[in-house]
Write a protein that binds this DNA or RNA. Structure first.
Lengths: 332, 332
DNA sequence: AACCGATAAGTAACCGATTACATTTCGGTC
DNA sequence: GACCGAAATGTAATCGGTTACTTATCGGTT
């Protein structure tokens, strides 16, 4: 006995009013008499009526849904981001439509295209795409924001000061007396990774410290571990490591310990992001308020959707150095 | 010059065919001549046409979207689940619509209602709701699966054998010589938490071990820490702790160490879930293949959506004991 | 009681696709 | 070249809402 779900016409019939009145009652228009509204509400209740979202979107060209396009869903970084976004969205009556864009720009285009008509706005995180590539991919007519990426000229971007964050982490290593520093960078094409490396290098240069080691990781645990093992196998000497992100740092940490080195006594170590794991492992790092960034981005996106407001000034979230065990100790 | 996006009629006009032919060409029907299809494709390309998803959903009553309703998004448990679901969904051309349902059953109903008409099927995780409550909330006419919860009689459920998992963790503590065991349970209303406590108690009973300590946690780190501190303050004696989940175990671990106790020498500790953090902290635990469960649930949901197939046999994912540092050592 | 402007309610067009059904065109046969 | 069934194409109804526009009803005034 699975009956067709009730439509607005069924409700109108039962409440003995027109569909227009039902629609008005439902959407809180003011020109509806109280007793009419009550009859409608009663009928809605009786029939367990729920408006059909597709029909509503079609006629009002509004979906009350926001699209979120992410490079991948691995790890706590993304879950935090989504959490912040979901909070801001649901507080405003919006739902989140998720789509992952596996690095390929081709597929990135597809991921964005399938959202057309399903969402009122788009939040995109694409650190591996250039500014131009993103601009080309984003539909002109749809409100959009960018999150943690190369800031756009056309759309609001929610970014962090990667260079300054990396520089301050590096200065901290120098401040606790480390001179032979090393950096494990992120993936080649990644914007944030490049910026962080720049920040590291400029801090080194500014301090007049010796030329550092630099290895190319992949933002993953294994990458970090591999680089460190390589260095140790080659007999490189270093007493401080600044990793492009926390996962890389964690891989490095394990490789260092596996090699019998003490952290921080022999090698101090600092990461970037402050994922929850960092706190548990006592990893010093640069705190990126990921959930806040996600929330701010969605908040702004909703504002754009509801009031057409534009503007494209990048919003830079402040970073904070978080010092824990991996840099709290004196050199041997 | 932001022009209205092209519609199927624009395409039809440009390709000099009817809208029906455009639709047929687009949806890969066979009765379309090659040159017609080519003209249509050309026009689509020229106009950058993308079909309007809302219109398509309305007329075909299909959205190619699946709804995911979760209790919360905190922690790695959920990000893993979403990751598994997203993988299975995107492989099949489906998008995921996210909604969090804050414990309140009232709100749970709303979270489900807003998805009506926006999704072809629903995957719900609601461990804090009874079987009946979920059945009442889920719309009859919509395909649905349940994930990690009290199994339903009406819908496929993807569950784990909490009792056996908890029992085997408990047997392991007994096997390494611990006798005075303690259990930090999860939140009162949570199905999995109750089952795990049952498993713990029955393993104790079966082994004829002394009556254990049992405290009520909340699946969170702080809860675990609080219970342990209470026990220690009251002078309780125990040499093995089985926590309802990993986060609880991690809180317990920190409280134990803060009190100067060695793990596992003084107190052995085992958790449940095997979140990534557990590996990094050397926490023994029971591995729950969360991502696999999410993927399996979505896979099944897609099958239900596309072929009306029903069936409600719960699918039980196997668990696996993972032994790490917190239980690897001999008692003092 | 008649009349007024304001407010409430109704009618029907519209959003952009899909698809049943009607019509045209095609390729082959005699 | 006329005729046939099959294949291709076109026409128009339909999905379920929103809303511009029209019509009915209201309370208040003279």
């Amino acid at each position: 006995m699975k009956s067709r779900p009730a439509t607005i016409r069924d409700v109108a019939r039962r409440a003995k009013v027109s569909v227009a009145s039902v629609s008005r009652a439902l959407n809180g228009h003011k020109n509806v008499r109280d007793d009419t509204r009550d009859r409608v509400l009663q009928a809605i209740d009786d029939l367990h009526y729920v408006p059909n979202a597709a029909a509503r979107s079609l006629s009002s060209s509004q979906t009350r849904t926001l699209g979120v396009v992410l490079p991948d869903l691995h790890g706590e970084f993304f879950s935090e981001l989504i959490r912040g976004m979901d909070k801001a969205a649901s507080e405003r009556g919006y739902l989140l439509l998720l789509s992952t864009m596996h690095a390929d720009p081709q597929l990135a285009g597809q991921a964005i295209a399938v959202m057309r008509g399903r969402v009122d706005g788009l939040a995109v995180m694409a650190p591996q795409l250039s500014r131009d590539a993103i601009d080309r991919l984003m539909p002109e007519e749809m409100p959009g924001v960018q999150v943690i990426c190369q800031p756009s000229k056309k759309r609001p971007s929610f970014i962090i000061d990667n260079r300054e964050g990396a520089a301050s982490a590096t200065r901290h290593l120098l401040a606790i007396g480390r001179r032979r520093l090393a950096h494990i960078a992120g993936p080649e094409g990644n914007f944030d990774a490049r910026e962080r490396r720049q920040g590291f290098l400029s801090a080194i240069a500014a301090a007049g410290a010796p030329a550092p080691l630099v290895g190319a990781g992949d933002f993953g645990e294994d990458g970090g571990a591999r680089i460190v093992r390589d260095w140790l196998a080659r007999g490189e000497r270093f007493d401080g490591v600044m990793a492009a992100n926390d996962m890389t740092a964690i891989g490095a940490l394990e490789a260092l310990r596996a090699h019998g080195l003490r952290v921080p006594e022999d090698v101090a170590l600092i990461g970037f992001d402050d994922i929850p794991l960092a706190r548990h492992l006592g990893l010093s790092t640069v705190r990126v308020p990921v959930a806040d960034i996600g929330a701010a981005a969605v908040e702004r996106l909703v504002a754009m959707v509801t009031s057409q407001e534009a503007g494209a000034t990048p919003e830079v979230q402040p970073l904070e150095l978080v010092l824990r065990a991996t840099t709290q100790g004196r050199p041997h």
